[in-house]
Amino acid sequence: MNTADPDGPSGDLDELDVAILREVRWMWESVDPAPPELADLVKFAIQLEDVDVEVVRLTEHREVAGVRGDVRSKLITFSGDTLDFMVNVQPRNDGTVRIDGWISPPAAHPVEVRTGEGPPLHTSANEEGRFAFDRVPCGLMQIVIRPTGRTSAVSTPTMTL
């Protein structure tokens, strides 16, 4: 390696390097900008009171045509190390959604839905792992399951519904 080369790898970072990196930043900001809502999604998610959180990964996201053609429900599948679950999100015409969920392996775990409006909603799954929330305000939403007998919570990332 030629150490005498002022443009080589062992040269100190200079103004031209700084200018190049600034242009590289502008380039990526133009081609692939962070979504403006990203920081808000993160801020909402980290208001969660739990400290020990396992985050499930979204593995499938499908839109399903409803009985009436205009109403489409969403079927979202999440998987994690502790458990997997699926939710069917059915929009109502009053600015809320109905959520039906199935936890696998099935167990009667407490389930919480955090929303952008009002206090969190709570329910519990039954022995078959099924749970439901009748009316959840549209907007930001995070589903948190607290498996019985464990200290850690299982959470989705924040979603916008």
């Binding site: 979504p35 998610a45 980290i46 969660l48 985050v55 990964r57």
Partner: peptide, 24 residues
Amino acid sequence: ARAQGLDRERSADAVQTAWLRLLG
């Protein structure tokens, strides 16, 4: 996240996941 070749929706999830793990 995007430099790993992940789509935009999952990239936002990846960033959130890191922040939620940070809590612990």
